[in-house]
Write a protein that binds this DNA or RNA. Structure first.
Lengths: 348, 348
DNA sequence: CCAACGCCTGAAAGCGCTTCCCGAATCGTA
DNA sequence: TACGATTCGGGAAGCGCTTTCAGGCGTTGG
């Protein structure tokens, strides 16, 4: 980036026959209303010369920028890809830029990255991804974020309580409880739980909600049926194989996210267990593949893309909300092919 | 972003008892080697005060920035999510920022975005996503990119020929031809092609390569077996249903990408057609779900994440290559459960 | 022992934009 | 018509950093 000539504001001003200050005021649009003929002239000149302001100069002078920081767990994970997609689209439509990082839930990496975003004077920071149950882990990151927030920056977090700024929280507890009720209605009485890491608040909530839903009907989960594993396809697969190896199967398996549920489905299929004839399977999240798998997966639908878009809209509000708002997004149970009436025990 | 106090270079300099210029030179590291005691003092002061340079001031003065522009088709598409993931990780590791946009193959949006990236003086632009066969469509975008390139910026494109700068090109033709040969070896003689949009260079190449591979064994594709559809799961599903409705099935279906192949698998499963017993199915790309589906999908593996990482590395080379380099990435055929020996015609 | 030569350092001039401040112009009203 | 109240435009001072330009000092060679 050495050469290259750029049209500067000064060029526009001269071309329009006004001062630099006036040109600047006109182009920022905002509330300024100068002499209409000046406005017109400046706009015309800018268009004619193909003027694009130097964002760095602007940022330096005004101490703000037109970029938003997006910090997520991992783009490769469809859950976050959807959120990011929704957020990015809104930003692009509003002429804002998005700088994105994947932090893989590493609190230290998060902290460093946030510090950099602050130095960049980003307009807002959007943070997606559940925190660890152990709040102390993310102390450094929280501090960093607070100092950004206190300096006037907007913060919007998704699924992450206790952070400054606005927050979109997913009704994990209630969604899972709803799902449990629906499954109980189908006649299920014995359940397995594939929990993934219980260190994540999100997962803990889903599990707790599910248990609560069952408890309303007096159903408890056999501890032997609570299997944990990694939070991905493979985790679901292995956990289910473990279940299969134990020789005893529940009538229904709840995985704390869709990808794990898909893994469970695969394991069952390979073992020749009929779904939903013998065992029903349900997940949480409604990631794209849930609809495309065979059998299609019953799950709790989360409007991930809309959540990303909503987060970006909150982030871009002109004025930072006087009082931080907390929006709860409730999932909706969607029963598809992977669940069915409980097979009567005798018949097996 | 109003309040907030930041440590400036001046503070560091004063604290270290040197001039601003010296502090600047030390902190940029680079080749400068001043008096060692000064170096040490400055470094220590910077660390002690928690100095983070203002990237905008730096960008303004030096006319470069520490950010890379990443322009992709769509984050939600796992193919691009993987590329983006690989690229972002490399950038983060090197202390660079990534600003990302999804342009949905809209050439006009691409052009606008690239112009903005240029104005931002990004260090490099990485562009992923096949172009349309019709080159004229992306004229504006190409022009914009050229003017960026000529101004000294680095450009790395993935799967996109004829653009200035370096290019990672996927061996679509050869990969598809390899796949075809392997399928022929399995005894298949009648093939269906689910092509998706043939307006994309990538797809056109895959189809052409596949046909070439078949032709080597004197096999041609029955025109009735060339079905096109949208480039996604649903497209593969519908195309296959169309095939099923026609009453005649090939022994093998090749979909020009994995998601379509997964759609085909779903359609066949629903219709009760055994895979690979009656029909074999293969895709292209080896997106994560290909390995996790039931049956697991035979496909051409593309090292997408590595491609993203590689692209970023090219983009971050200190000096822009004197002559733009073109790296060809060859896919590797992976036969999994969705393909098998051709069922003998008689036996059906 | 002195001149010529390097290497460092610090002062200062921008990079392109925003915004404060003040004089000029405009408007309303008596 | 004239005067104060407003509004608007232009000059100029930065925003925080890089980099040029001299000048200072320590070396080396004659």
């Amino acid at each position: 980036m050495t050469g290259g000539s750029y049209v500067r504001l000064e060029d526009v001003a001269r071309h329009a026959g006004v001062s630099l200050a006036t040109a600047s005021r006109v182009l920022q649009g905002s509330s300024h209303r100068g002499r209409p003929e000046y406005r017109a002239k400046v706009m015309a000149s800018a268009a004619e010369l193909g003027y694009i302001p130097n964002p760095h100069a602007r940022a330096l002078a005004a101490n703000t920028s037109d970029t938003i920081g997006l910090v997520i767990h991992d783009v490769r994970d469809p859950y976050f890809a959807l959120i990011a997609g929704g957020a990015i689209d809104v930003a692009t439509a509003r002429g804002q830029f998005v700088t994105m990082a994947c932090t893989y839930r590493d609190p230290e990496l998060e902290a460093r990255y946030i510090a950099n975003l602050r130095a960049q004077r980003v307009r807002a920071i959007i943070l997606a991804g559940s925190a660890f149950v152990d709040a102390a882990t993310s102390k450094a990151m929280t501090t960093e974020l607070e100092s950004y927030y206190n300096a006037g920056g907007s913060v919007v977090s998704i699924t992450r309580h206790r952070l400054p700024g606005d927050c979109l929280v997913v009704g994990n507890r209630s969604g899972a409880a709803d799902l449990a009720r629906r499954l109980v209605d189908l006649g299920h009485t014995s359940f397995a739980l594939l929990a993934g890491t219980t260190r994540l608040v999100t997962i803990r909530d889903r599990v707790a909600g599910f248990k609560k839903g069952l408890a309303e009907s007096g159903i408890e989960v056999d501890p032997a049926f609570e299997v944990s594993g990694t939070f991905d396809h493979d985790g679901g697969l292995r956990a289910t194989q473990q279940l299969l190896a134990s020789g005893r199967l529940p009538t229904c398996i709840f995985a704390s996210n869709d990808v794990m549920a898909l893994g469970a489905l695969t394991a069952l299929r390979r073992a020749g267990v009929d779904v939903p004839g013998e065992v029903s399977v349900a997940g949480f999240g409604d990631v794209v593949m849930a609809r495309d798998f065979v059998p299609t997966l019953s799950t709790v639908h989360l409007p991930l893309e809309e959540m990303g878009a909503h987060a970006m809209e909150l982030a871009l509000r002109d004025e930072r909300g006087s009082s931080p708002r907390k929006v709860t997004i409730n999932g909706e149970v969607v029963l598809r092919e992977s669940t069915g009436p409980a097979a009567s025990r005798r018949r097996r």
